[in-house]
Amino acid sequence: MSEFESLGLKSGIWQGILRRETPPGRLLLVHMGSPVAEALATAEPEGGWRVAAAIPPELLSDGVQSFLLVEDRGAAAEPLQAGAHSLGSLTLIAGALLDDDLLAEMTLMRAELELLKKELRRLAAAIG
């Protein structure tokens, strides 16, 4: 079980709960291998840490965008440190191009299903 539980995205802020007793190190939001924002962690009264990371609006565009929440032991202005580990991921999908991608995928699935049905009928006729 992961120690980070995502609470979702609302108003451009990705939130979650980090379930551990010790405070986290530096938390970074990473997009395409580069840190794009620092996440804030605040202690929860019932234990654990509430994590909030603002998704930079300039990174939102058509297609699929993936963001990672990464913890390392670096200082605020330092680059991502070696030994950093991922706590969670967020994938955003948007845009009109996605409709074409999904339509193409559905068409391919239908074609594969028709092929499978044809082969099953051929097998049933050969056995029966």
Rank of each mutant, 00 (worst) to 15 (best):
I93N: 08
T107R: 09
A77S: 12
L68V: 06
H85F: 12
I55R: 07
T91D: 07
L103H: 13
S86L: 10
M109L: 13
T107G: 12
G83F: 03
L103I: 13
D101Q: 07
R110L: 06
D100N: 00
A104T: 01
P57M: 01
G88D: 07
A126F: 08
V51G: 03
D62S: 10
D100R: 01
Q65W: 11
D99W: 04
I55A: 06
Q81D: 02
A104R: 02
F67R: 00
L97Y: 08
G63R: 04
A126L: 09
H85C: 11
L102F: 03
A52M: 05
L98G: 09
A52H: 06
A94Q: 10
L68N: 08
L92M: 01
H85L: 12
A52Y: 09
R50T: 01
D99F: 05
R121H: 10
G95V: 00
A94G: 06
L40K: 15
A125R: 11
G63W: 08
I93M: 08
S89I: 07
E71D: 09
M109K: 15
P79Y: 04
K117C: 12
A82T: 06
L80H: 01
A43P: 13
V70W: 04
A84Y: 01
A43I: 09
D101L: 07
L97P: 00
P79R: 05
A111D: 05
D62V: 11
M106H: 11
T91V: 09
R122T: 13
E58T: 06
V64P: 07
F67S: 00
G48K: 04
A52C: 07
W49F: 06
T91W: 03
G63D: 08
E58D: 11
A124S: 13
M106Y: 06
V64Q: 12
E38I: 14
A94C: 05
A82R: 07
T107E: 11
E44C: 12
A52V: 01
A124T: 15
A76F: 13
R73P: 04
A125K: 13
A43N: 10
W49I: 02
G95C: 01
G48E: 06
T107P: 01
K118Q: 10
V70D: 08
L87C: 00
Q65I: 11
T91H: 10
L98M: 07
E114H: 03
L120F: 11
L98K: 08
L103D: 14
R73N: 09
K117Q: 14
L80F: 00
Q65Y: 08
P57E: 06
L87W: 05
A39V: 12
R50N: 02
Q65V: 09
A54I: 13
G47V: 05
H85N: 11
M106P: 13
D62N: 09
L80T: 01
L90M: 11
A82G: 07
A84W: 00
L120N: 10
K117S: 15
A37K: 15
A126K: 09
L68W: 05
T107I: 12
L102P: 00
T91I: 05
T42H: 13
L90Y: 07
P79Q: 03
E44D: 14
L90G: 05
R122A: 12
E105K: 06
G63S: 03
T42A: 14
L69N: 10
A37Q: 15
L60W: 00
L68A: 08
I93G: 07
D72F: 03
E46T: 05
L59I: 02
E105H: 12
I55D: 13
L123W: 15
I93V: 04
F67D: 02
E44V: 14
A54S: 13
